[in-house]
Amino acid sequence: MAYFPIPTGSLLALGAILFCIGLYGALTKRNLIIVLVSVELMLNAANINLVVFSRLGLNPGLNGQVFALFTITVAAAEIAVGLALLLAVFRLRKTSDVNDLNENKN
């Protein structure tokens, strides 16, 4: 197995920047699908961190990689339920814009 020693800090920095871009998208985007996509981006950044950390520590092992697999599974279930909810809302309201779905506004 080819392993290239990439500095841990660089990998973690990639994860951090991806997370913040996802956070910005989730806070500002208007389309419900894009908000979901941004949440997926944040989950993906966390996955990168898990895989990186599995190599560190007192007894390096595969725990982090197994955690990342579980996260991928949960993310798949989340996006399936989220998109189903989105379709139901769209059928009811004919919109996927978060501002139009805000019941408290007026």
Binding site: F4, I6, I33, V51, A68, I79
Partner: peptide, 23 residues
Amino acid sequence: LVGAEFVGVAQLLVYAGAITILI
């Protein structure tokens, strides 16, 4: 690249394949 081949393949199948197409 960091040697997590199985996670990489799962990422390809689940995220790049299924989730992108679902979206």
